[in-house]
């Protein structure tokens, strides 16, 4: 990442309460311009709330956010002129047809009547929605609505696009189409901040990822950074002599200080979460103690494992900070 690259989003210490609920508890977010940035977190973590603050729909209780160089609270119009938002629930007029929806929005963005008409047609064709274009949106399927919602946010190409779970409820081919669109936008220079529940989606698309839980960002980095930092991979060891399993388990536990579980095959053991160099030492330690190893593998963590490791750790911490994981 070029350190000098200008920032699309710079948020510090955003907080937001809804009555008794603390939705955001000090969110810091730095998104470089021109990249796809993934925003991950479990339900209720505060993703949508953060996006709505950045898109000028909500006011933070405290903290500051600059979007494309403008303060969201003090210069909302400057921000609005450059962004576009496709929210979590499709923001469409159910009673109108798709074409009417797009034409109304085209006019509101500033297109003249002719231009808004031709842009509507262009987008309907591009998103494969032309066949249903003149049917009221309320007769559309959920996936079609999501695609129309994305199309509606691209009537004018924004400098920064907020996508709140853009592929939830889409079939695989529609999802691939959305990914393609997002990539093409990023290549053309649009910064995309997208929230998602699908970790493979963030893994495929995002240059950087922030993980949010209980209203704070608990991890940030490239997908590779996150996987490396949590070290949530699995070390699998297959012993040459299954009867040595108890000694082997004790030896691994001594080196790694992690719980060791027997595998399904006799004489197989697995350990969740060791760092790669520690795993290498552990295998060497078995060898030095005359415990022959038939096979071993260090499975790279999936982003799902990273996510679970991070968010459950945060949940444990908040439940009881003093509590250590029980072996």
């Amino acid at each position: 990442m070029e350190a000098a690259a200008e920032l699309a989003i710079q948020a510090t210490g955003l907080t937001k309460r809804f009555a008794a609920t603390v939705a955001l508890d000090g969110v810091d977010l730095t998104v470089p311009a021109g990249t796809i940035y993934g925003f991950l977190g479990p339900n209720g973590a505060g993703k949508t709330t953060t996006l709505r603050i950045l898109a000028t729909l909500l006011r933070a209780d405290s903290g500051t956010a600059r979007v494309l160089g403008h303060d969201v609270a003090r210069e909302p119009d400057a921000v609005r002129a450059r962004i576009s938002l496709a929210g979590q629930s499709a923001a469409l007029d159910e009673d109108l047809t798709a074409r009417e929806n797009l034409r109304v929005l085209g006019r509101l963005i500033g297109h003249h009547s002719r231009a808004s008409r031709s842009r509507a047609q262009e987008l309907l064709d591009a998103f494969g929605l032309a066949d249903a274009a003149d049917r009221p949106v309320k007769t559309w399927s959920g996936g079609m609505r999501r695609r129309l919602d994305l199309a509606a946010s691209l009537i004018a190409t924004p400098e920064l696009l907020f996508l709140d779970e853009p592929t939830s409820g889409l079939d695989p081919s529609s999802r691939a189409q959305v990914w393609d669109t997002v990539r093409a936008l990023a290549e053309a220079g649009t910064t995309v901040l997208l929230t998602t529940q699908y970790l493979d989606e963030a893994d495929r698309l995002a240059a950087r990822i922030a993980v949010i839980d209980h209203g704070t960002v608990i991890a940030e980095g490239t997908p590779g950074d996150l996987k490396a930092a949590t070290g949530a991979g699995q070390l699998h060891v297959q012993l040459a002599a299954p009867e040595q399993a108890p000694q082997a388990a004790a030896a691994l536990r001594r080196v790694l200080d992690l719980p060791v579980r027997p595998g399904t095959d006799p004489g197989s053991l697995s350990v969740a979460g060791p760092a790669a160099d520690q795993a290498a030492l552990a295998v060497a330690h078995l060898h030095r103690n005359s415990i022959p190893v038939a096979a071993f593998a260090l499975a790279r963590p999936s982003l799902d494992e990273v996510f679970l490791a991070l968010t459950t750790r945060a949940a444990d911490d908040s439940a009881d900070p003093a509590k250590e994981p029980v072996v």
Binding site: I109, E122, A156, T157, Q177, D180
Partner: peptide
Amino acid sequence: TSSDAQALSAAPARPRPAPP
């Protein structure tokens, strides 16, 4: 699929006009 690529070529970027 080819239809995805076609989709993108059919919806080129559009600069934002002056607000109404």
